[in-house]
């Protein structure tokens, strides 16, 4: 079957649909930022975008390249210092939803963005590190995670646990007394995974058009649990695709149009 959109576009659109209108949303850079801005320009115009640079209620017209682009502070309702952002706003429990990317994820939606391979001291690949991700994962009311689905990313055991999801599953998160409920969905380019209500193990609940359950299982590095009823994601609407493509084109022009 040939589709008139890419799997990355489907991922961003599926992720955007998870965003409720009006919710204060803590946004990571990259895929989460694309999904959040798509949501704000389609079904969720009153979403309050919060970037860790201190910009609260940002309304960018192009996607920021960095977490603190001028576009964010110029369009924000308020700009606060970093200590205030992390202490009063995030730790203060004022953010309903956090939206993160990851380099690796495990079956309990714990994520790694620190090191891959080797040892911590001598890694094969040194990634940027935690940034604000672990506080977002701990403190937001709930957390969405979005990343591309393949065996290198969906691993049995993380090389490093940067940000806690549901830890060892079951009640292991609530025993740690973290304020937020943790990850509620993982949106990939193949489908959607949600934690089981009790075991908290990620379970495949949706595949995107043209993707089979077997394909998702094959791209997952552990024996993936599959829901009894696996839904098929609604394909992108014309409006969703048009808005996303327009956003990406404007962004590419804006970032290339210097120097």
């Amino acid at each position: 079957m040939s589709l008139n959109y890419t799997s990355d576009e489907m991922m961003t659109i599926a992720a955007a649909r998870k965003i409720r209108n009006g919710a204060p949303l803590f946004v990571g850079i990259g895929l989460p930022s694309a999904a959040a801005n798509l949501a704000r320009q389609t079904h969720a115009p009153d979403t309050i975008l919060i970037y860790e640079s201190g910009t609260i209620g940002a309304k960018p017209s192009v996607l920021p390249l960095s977490i603190g682009d001028g576009e964010l502070s110029e369009t924000a309702d308020a700009v606060v210092s970093i200590p205030e952002m992390f202490a009063y706003w995030l730790q203060g429990g004022r953010v309903a939803l956090g939206f993160l990317g990851a380099a690796q994820i495990d079956k309990y939606a714990n994520i790694n963005s620190t090191v891959i391979g080797g040892t911590y001291q001598k890694p094969k690949v040194r990634l940027p590190g935690a940034g604000g991700a672990q506080e977002i994962a701990a403190n937001c009311g709930e957390v969405l995670i979005t990343l591309r689905h393949n065996k290198r990313a969906f691993v049995e055991k993380l090389d490093f646990l940067t940000s806690g999801g549901h830890f060892e599953g079951g009640d292991s998160r609530s025993k740690r007394n973290l304020p937020g409920r943790g990850p509620t969905a993982v949106i990939t380019d193949l489908g959607i995974l949600e934690p089981h209500p009790e075991t908290k193990e990620l379970t495949l609940t949706n595949v995107h058009q043209g993707v089979t359950v077997e394909q998702v299982v094959a791209e997952t590095g552990w024996a993936l649990k599959v829901a009894e009823q696996v839904g098929t994601t609604e394909p992108p609407t014309e409006r969703e695709l048009a808005v996303l493509r327009d956003l990406n084109e404007r962004t590419a022009r804006a970032h290339a149009g210097q120097q």
Binding site: G30, S66, K122, P123, V125, R126, P128, G129, G131, G132
Partner: peptide, 19 residues
């Protein structure tokens, strides 16, 4: 707490020093 080239990728000199 976060060592990267925002929106671009790795800091290659930091990585080369660590790795």
């Amino acid at each position: 707490s976060w060592g990267g080239n925002p929106g671009v990728g790795s800091l290659h000199r930091l990585r080369d020093a660590v790795e």
